[in-house]
């Protein structure tokens, strides 16, 4: 499992983004988190070379949601051989935008006193779900009607054993807000909304039947290319 946090949102465990053998002994592992509304890239830097590393800096290529470092990479003391340090890099979402493939891909350059190194990583789109993403009920109904059927995508979430209220609470801790709950023919149905940092809204219908571990998720969004990533977020949140 991941590291718990105050708001209860799930954080993916760190993985290796830059192996030491590709970066003259510098190993970087990391993950992304949204902590109380603040976006962070959380990094572990390990020196697997035989000399000291210093003068660290980081830069992002333009990306789909304008992610950019909101400050310098704070490595205040040189990194000795075999030493690991943990660094949190605050992020903003007002950097230059360029649509990436896949959508949530981020290209990063890290520099130290030895060289400049490049790697790619992917962030969970749930990191971009804002705290004020609960849509007015009237607006939800109008928007749901307004978004064409071609923009609706349907997904199955398997092996889920939460009831509707538990699922709703869990999703809310990741800024997926329940606007209405209904029951029709024995199925519990949640209507939910999400707003991304770039003001894209995603509307969802989550169906579940007591005793059936497979949920049906329908997503409606004007920018429908985000839907598969939002589905991944539902899976990640509900199963962790």
């Amino acid at each position: 499992g991941g590291v718990g946090m105050a708001s209860g949102a799930y954080v993916v465990p760190k993985s290796v983004w830059l192996p030491a053998m590709k970066a003259k002994g510098l190993e970087i592992s990391g993950t992304f988190a949204r902590r109380a509304g603040v976006l962070q890239m959380e990094l572990s830097l390990t020196n697997k070379a035989m000399s000291i590393m210093s003068d660290f800096a980081i830069q992002f290529n333009r990306n789909s949601f304008g992610l950019a470092p909101a400050g310098p990479l704070q490595v205040l003391t040189p990194l000795s051989p075999n030493q690991t340090i943990e660094v949190s890099l605050p992020l903003s979402t007002v950097g230059p935008v360029m649509k990436m493939e896949p959508l949530t891909n981020l290209q990063v350059a890290v520099k130290n006193n030895i060289d400049v190194f490049y790697f790619s990583c992917q962030y969970p789109i749930s990191m971009l779900f804002v705290e004020d993403g609960k849509m007015e009920r009237q607006v939800f109904l109008a928007t749901w009607k307004d978004i064409p059927n071609e923009n609706e995508a349907q997904f199955q979430i398997k092996d889920c054993h939460l009831n509707a209220d538990a699922a709703s609470a869990k999703l809310q801790s990741s800024n997926i807000f329940t606007i209405a709950k209904r029951n029709a023919e024995g199925q519990d149905i949640l209507y939910q909304s999400i707003r991304l940092t770039n003001s894209i809204w995603v509307l969802s219908e989550l169906r579940m039947q007591p005793g059936n571990p497979s949920y049906t998720l329908s997503l409606k969004c004007r920018a429908s290319e985000v839907s598969p990533f939002v589905f991944q977020s539902y899976e990640m949140v509900l199963k962790n």
Partner: peptide, 20 residues
């Protein structure tokens, strides 16, 4: 009154998607 109307609208939405 508006709230009642919205409650009903969500019920209709759920119903219409269950039995299209």
């Amino acid at each position: 009154e508006l709230e009642d109307g919205l409650d009903e609208a969500f019920s209709r939405l759920a119903e219409s998607r269950t039995n299209p």
